[in-house]
Design a protein around this nucleic acid. Sequence first.
DNA 1: ATGACGACACAATGTCGA
Length: 259
Amino acid sequence: MRIATWNVNSVTARLPRLLAWLSSAQPDVLCVQELKCTDEAFPTAEITELGYEVASHGTGRWNGVAVLSKVGLTDVTRGLVDQPGYEDVAEPRAIGATCGGVRVWSVYVPNGREPDHAHYAYKLRWLEALQTTVLAERAAERPFAVLGDFNIAPTDDDVWDISLFTESTHVTEPERKALAMLRDTGLTDVLPRALKYDRPFTYWDYRQLAFPKNNGMRIDLVYADAAFAGAVTDAYVDRDERKGKGASDHAPVVVDLSL
DNA sequence: ATGACGACACAATGTCGA
């Protein structure tokens, strides 16, 4: 089984590339983030035409997550257990589904903006709710993974130059501690291969030639339980999808499993 | 070539992303 995650940065703007990538990479399950559209505007018809079932959770111009599956799509859950809101709005950032016997969550963790910003405190609260949800989900005996844009670089090697991040979110100790606590629940960071260079970055800013210079970050993660992680036969970042006009600023992370 | 930001809501800029 092939399971992937991809922050597409607008599913409507990315639709031609998304459809082409689904046809060529042929994932059985794709977790999508940053839909930037409502559920009504989600391009369900075009995607179902390729043989996928669709569950989306989107409210408009920001955020939005979805699960696409060719191997069944049941028990859809929208939102986390005790999920906090931002400025009294419950944002669409998490959706869970069972696909082919595997429980997956597609998540878009809040950015945080600046370490002293209210959005950063929101990010940490949101990660607490994610942990609560993971603990509740792990009651069942089935392969399980949280996939998505975590907006955290797990180690200093997961950014192109750590010296440029001294005042930045994504690398702070509290954020990394939240990831460590997720691992402590029994999840493993499934490290993908890089198809070029030495580090498997998943995001490159649109600005300042970040992609050609490989000024990237690894922030799109697959956090898997033992049953899921033990079945992994390969994992890689499809950096080719970051190339050219009309690319998302994130590349897909692809995981192959012997299930 | 992988090339100097893009998407969206709004109606010219402003917000957000990380």
